Simulated assay, not measured.
Amino acid sequence: MRTKLLSGLSLAILIAVGGCKSQKGKFEFVLPESGQRVAFGDQVKLKLNFPNTTLDSVVYSIDGELLVTKTDTGSVVFDTKKFGFGDRSLSAKVYVGGKEDIAYSNVIVLPPNAKNYSFEVVNEFPHDTKAYTQGLQYADGVLYETTGQPSQLEGVVTSLRKVDLKTGEVLKIEKPSDDFFGEGMTIVGNTIVFLTWENGKGFFYDKNTFKRIGEFPYENSKYGWGVTYDGNKLIKSDGSSRLYFLDAKTGKEIDSIEVYDENGKVDSINELEYIDGKVYANVYSKDIIVIIDPKTGVVEGRINLVGLYTEGRLPNDNELNGVAYDTVGKRLFVTGKLWPKLYEIKLIER
């Protein structure tokens, strides 16, 4: 879970190599500048520099989707509301005497500023300092937790656990015999979904017996970091800026979405929890949890947890990495790798 996946690689290479001047000497975009950042809802002017005014037609497209066809050199307008957030690839094909030329540009459509939250500690509970926490969920009055196994930490193992919230006592534990680094988990009915990091697959476990009952391969999302359940689909992270939607019964990948805040893509999305229609995700190596709308990929909120746990904390292998929610009691819990405590916190909007 320390590997970052690149998204939009082909587009990035295209822009870096060619950009809006990919057809220099023929015709090119004057507006917008390649990589220009614009706010969602803006009307973006598309203007081309033509080597001459003799043309048959110009075909403008956004992400390969036809925007408009014109027969003159006048500018056109791109309504960002109609195409959503993130990188939008722009192209213009000009036809002169039966010949085709093409120019490229792109814009990054950004959402409004996310709300910012600080926190108040409501309760503290003991947490096993041998638990290298990767996944955390509250259900049936207890915590379910998955842990990883860094090779340099003696006595720290990959495991699936059932834990008493108040005492921190491990009520049930399964230590898989095969060699894999345990990652995030979630619960679907009586099934626990348990991810591996680099093994290219996830596992299904029986929630009551902790026996493995199935597995599924990863697809476009090659790594396993975090996973949660929205009541219909699994939502999976892989350390990149994308969330992946999987069939909850088979683990088959259905779709994905890029996550953006007002500054651009949000990378290193890690442990996930689905709360009241939003995905709460900690950002790897930062004491930050972002609140994501899974329908749009927009970060609507940002929780700053700096200062929550500092005493005796190590610079590495002590990262924030556990988010759980009590849907009945409306309690939010957070912890981290090898943390001595699990915290119940209350959010305070700033």
Results as ranks from 00 to 15, higher is better:
252 K>S: 13
217 P>Y: 03
226 G>A: 00
246 L>R: 14
243 L>A: 05
263 N>G: 07
252 K>V: 11
258 E>R: 11
248 A>Y: 07
208 N>H: 11
233 K>Q: 14
232 N>M: 02
257 I>P: 04
239 G>L: 03
193 V>C: 15
232 N>H: 00
252 K>R: 14
249 K>V: 05
229 Y>D: 01
266 V>R: 07
253 E>C: 10
218 Y>S: 08
192 I>N: 11
201 K>R: 15
201 K>W: 02
265 K>W: 03
254 I>Q: 15
218 Y>V: 11
241 S>H: 05
205 Y>M: 05
218 Y>L: 12
210 F>L: 14
246 L>T: 04
257 I>V: 14
221 S>L: 12
226 G>C: 00
246 L>P: 05
252 K>P: 04
204 F>E: 09
213 I>W: 05
200 G>E: 05
203 F>I: 04
209 T>F: 03
244 Y>M: 07
234 L>D: 13
248 A>R: 05
221 S>T: 10
252 K>E: 12
198 E>I: 07
269 I>N: 07
255 D>R: 11
261 D>H: 11
212 R>K: 14
229 Y>H: 13
243 L>Q: 07
270 N>R: 05
234 L>Y: 07
258 E>S: 14
252 K>C: 05
251 G>L: 07
216 F>I: 12
219 E>S: 14
195 L>E: 12
249 K>F: 10
250 T>D: 13
272 L>K: 08
230 D>C: 04
221 S>F: 02
231 G>H: 00
196 T>C: 08
239 G>P: 00
267 D>P: 02
209 T>A: 11
260 Y>G: 07
263 N>P: 00
232 N>S: 12
195 L>R: 09
210 F>W: 09
253 E>P: 11
224 G>P: 01
232 N>V: 09
